[in-house]
Design a protein around this nucleic acid. Structure first.
Lengths: 233, 233
DNA sequence: CGACGAAATCGAACGGCGTGCGAGTGCATT
DNA sequence: AATGCACTCGCACGCCGTTCGATTTCGTCG
C-alpha cells in the first residue's frame, strides 16, 4: 500500500479563503481566459502567474499542482451547461437540450476535448449536470443501472461527436490553409477508395459547419430513438 | 496567405528507405512500445532515441517533428481494428464487430484516447477502416450524406464511451488505491445528490469492468436500433 | 505601538522537454 | 583520390512543472 493515492482537488478540503491574498476563483478565471485564448498548450504556470502579476510559484499556495488547476477549470465549463427540468419539458427535450448545450460548451472551450480522456468529472458542476441528466432518464422510465447506461450513452455520443470536431477545427485554425493544395493532397490520400473520394468531392461545396450540425442532429435523433426503443419493450 | 500550412505526415512523400540506416517502421514500432508501456507522457524523443541506441535528434531525419511520429503511431493502432465484410455478415453485425474492436484497441492502447481530439485520422489504416464502415452503412441502405452521418454516429458513440473509460482506468492505475478512503471521499462528494449516492452504493459491489461492458452493450444496441429506425422510414 | 506568528510571495535551481543548427562520419560513385 | 549524398549527433536555446528555503506582508495580541 505504498503507491500514490488517487488524488483530486475534489477530495481535499480547499484552502481557507481567509487572508486578503489572491483567491482560487481569481486564478481559475484567469486560467480559463488563457485556455480559451491560447489553448491547453498555452497555459503555463509562468504565463498564468504573469497574468496575475504574481510569481509562477505563488500559485502553488492555492493548489497542489497544475492538474488540480485543470480539474478546477474543467469543472468550471461544466457549469456552463444548460439544463432544463425534465418534469416541465419532458425527458426527450431535456436530453436534447443538454446534448446541444454540451456540444456548444466544448466547441466554445476546445481545450476541454483534451481533458475528457484525462480527468474524471467529479466537480460540483459536473455532478449537478449528471444528477439532472439521470433525473431525465429516470423520468423517462429507465430503472436501476439502465438510468446510468442511458445517460452514459447520450454523453458518449455528444463527446464522441464533438471531440473529433475540435480536432478538425484545430487543424484548420493552425494556419491559413491553401485550400486547393489541401484538397488536392487529400484527394491523393483517398485515391483507391472511390466511395470516399466521391463523398469528399460532394462535400467540398457544402458549408462544413452546416454539414457538421446536420450530422450532429442526425446522430442525436438516432441515439434518442434507440434509447426510447429500450423503453417500450 | 502567410500562415503555417496544414501539415500531416500523410500529405508528404515519405523519405526513401534507400540506405542501411534506421527505418521509419523501426522507429514507430519502438515508439509504440514506449507508448503502450509508459503512456503518452512517457514518450520523449530522448527516451526513444536511447531505446534505439541513437541520439534523440537523429530521429528527425525520418520525420519532421514529434507530431508526425504520433500520427504514424496513431494510424498503426487503426491497423489493429478488425473489420468484417458486411456483405457476408450483414451490416449490423459488421458494425457491431467494428465497434467492439475499436473499444478493445483503445483500451489496449490508452494513449490513443488523448490523440483522438488532436489528430485527424488520415492515415492509410484509418482510411481503410472508414471505407469499410461506409460500405456497411451503404449496404444497410443509407444514401448520400447519411452514410457518413451513420458512420460518424457509431464512431462517436464508441469513442465517447471509451475515452472516459480510459480516463477512469488511468486514475485507478495511477497508484494503488485505498478503496475505503476513496469510497468515503466520493460519498462526501455526492452528498446532496441522493440518487447519485444510492447508485454509487449499489455499484460498489459489482465488478466495475463487467458493468462497463454491460453499459457498452446497452448503448451499442441503442445506437444501432436508432440508426436502423432511420432506414424503415 | 511593537512584536510575534501565520499567511502568502517569490527567486533560484533542478531535471526534463522539443528541436534548430552545424559539424562530423561513412559510403557509393566517379 | 575526390566528390557528394545519406545519415548521425552534441550542443544549445527556450520552454516547461515543481521543490525549497528565504523573504515579505499582515492581522492579532500584549
Amino acid at each position: 500500500m505504498t503507491g500514490k493515492q488517487f488524488s483530486s482537488v475534489w477530495l481535499r478540503e480547499p484552502r481557507k479563503a481567509t487572508g486578503p491574498g489572491r483567491s482560487r476563483e481569481e486564478i481559475v478565471s484567469a486560467a480559463l481566459e488563457l485556455l480559451d485564448s491560447e489553448g491547453l498548450g498555452g497555459l503555463s504556470m509562468r504565463k498564468l502567474g504573469a497574468k496575475l502579476d504574481a510569481g509562477a510559484t505563488s500559485l502553488y499556495w492555492y493548489m497542489a499542482n497544475k492538474d488540480e488547476l485543470l480539474e478546477l477549470a474543467y469543472d468550471e465549463v461544466w457549469g456552463e451547461m444548460v439544463i432544463h427540468a425534465p418534469e416541465e419539458v419532458g425527458w426527450r427535450d431535456a436530453a436534447s437540450a443538454v446534448a446541444y448545450s454540451m456540444r456548444q460548451v466544448i466547441l466554445r472551450h476546445p481545450w476541454t476535448a483534451d481533458l475528457i480522456g484525462r480527468l474524471a468529472a467529479l466537480g460540483p458542476n459536473a455532478l449537478r449536470v449528471t444528477d439532472q441528466m439521470r433525473r431525465s432518464f429516470s423520468l423517462a422510465g429507465f430503472e436501476g443501472m439502465e438510468i446510468d447506461f442511458a445517460n452514459a450513452t447520450l454523453t458518449a455520443y455528444v463527446f464522441g461527436m464533438t471531440i473529433p470536431e475540435v480536432a478538425w477545427n484545430n487543424a484548420m485554425a493552425q494556419g491559413q490553409i491553401d485550400e486547393a493544395t489541401l484538397r488536392e493532397s487529400v484527394e491523393r490520400l483517398v485515391s483507391g477508395y472511390p466511395d470516399l473520394r466521391e463523398r469528399l468531392r460532394a462535400n467540398t461545396y457544402e458549408d462544413p459547419q452546416a454539414v457538421r450540425a446536420m450530422c450532429f442532429d442526425f446522430g442525436l435523433v438516432s441515439v434518442l430513438d434507440g434509447l426510447e426503443a429500450r423503453l417500450v419493450r
